[in-house]
């Protein structure tokens, strides 16, 4: 039986472990020039731009509302889309070149399309949630660090579930999501700080990618190709019908006008 130890892998090689602040400092010093200038610029942006903008109670309340949200990005994408759609609806309604009926129909069409696409996106996102979780596990387990972290989380959650059986509801503990677990206990499994940061970002990104892909697919691909045309047909059909009715009963339409 041959046993080969992979000494190039940092966890197996103590000399490669960047596990103390001195080594980290030395490593950080090697990144000079443009990258450090950009970092300093970003830090200044954080202090002088981001802090005054984001340090308010609105963000605090948003954070409170989203405290138990599993993948909060989807809500931001939906509201972002609502803002864009709202802007276009407003623009349509204030357009002087269009006649009144057409304006209203088009605005209703835009709103209707937004509502349909948002419902579709939320539904699809929740439908693939479990499948994506399996893929998340599969993805993390491709690396030994990820595998260790995932197994650690499973073990911890099993312990919590076991404890919760004998506890009243108030004292029952929440299970750990993989991102929270990496934040809290990642250090216990991955010694290399750089590897841990990368793992954290990738895990977070994989989770976020689900909503990003689903909402992007619905808003940027499916809806413009598949939903816009049928809603346009409905609008045109409605307007034609209205014109026909107006032509058939000119007296009524004149009264309304």
């Amino acid at each position: 039986m041959n046993i080969t130890m992979n000494s190039s892998y940092k966890l197996n090689n103590n000399y490669n472990n960047l596990n103390n602040s001195r080594q980290n400092r030395q490593k950080a010093q090697s990144f000079t020039g443009i990258s450090s200038m950009y970092d300093r610029f970003c830090n200044q942006v954080g202090v002088h731009v981001c802090r005054p903008i984001f340090n308010n109670q609105v963000i605090g309340k948003l954070g409170y509302l989203l405290r138990n949200s599993e993948n909060a990005i989807k809500h931001f994408l939906a509201v972002g889309s609502a803002i864009t759609s709202g802007m276009y609806v407003k623009q349509t309604l204030s357009n002087k070149d269009m006649d009144k009926d057409r304006k209203k129909t088009l605005a209703a069409n835009q709103t209707f399309t937004f509502v349909i696409s948002t419902i579709m996106a939320y539904t699809l996102d929740s439908k693939i949630k479990n499948w994506w979780k399996k893929k998340h596990e599969q993805y993390l387990k491709l690396s030994p660090e990820g595998s260790a972290v995932w197994d650690g989380m499973t073990k911890k959650n099993a312990e919590i579930a076991e404890k919760n059986k004998s506890l009243p509801k108030e004292l029952q503990r929440q299970k750990w999501s993989i991102d929270d677990y990496i934040d809290k206990f990642g250090k216990n499994h991955v010694m290399d700080e750089e590897a841990l940061t990368k793992l954290k970002m990738r895990s977070k990104g994989f989770g976020a990618l689900r909503s990003i892909l689903v909402f992007g697919f619905i808003y940027r691909f499916f809806v413009p190709l598949a939903v816009v045309k049928p809603t346009n047909w409905i609008c045109n059909w409605y307007l034609e019908n209205k014109k026909k009715n107006a032509a058939a009963n000119p007296a009524e339409s004149a009264d309304k006008a």
Partner: peptide, 25 residues
């Protein structure tokens, strides 16, 4: 503690994503 940590996490997500709303228009 867990609840407060979740709020902090929510604030972080909000700060990163609220730019989507700011730049939308």
């Amino acid at each position: 503690i867990r609840n407060l940590e979740n709020i902090v996490k929510g604030i972080e997500t909000s700060m990163h994503n609220v730019t989507e709303w700011v730049i939308a228009i």
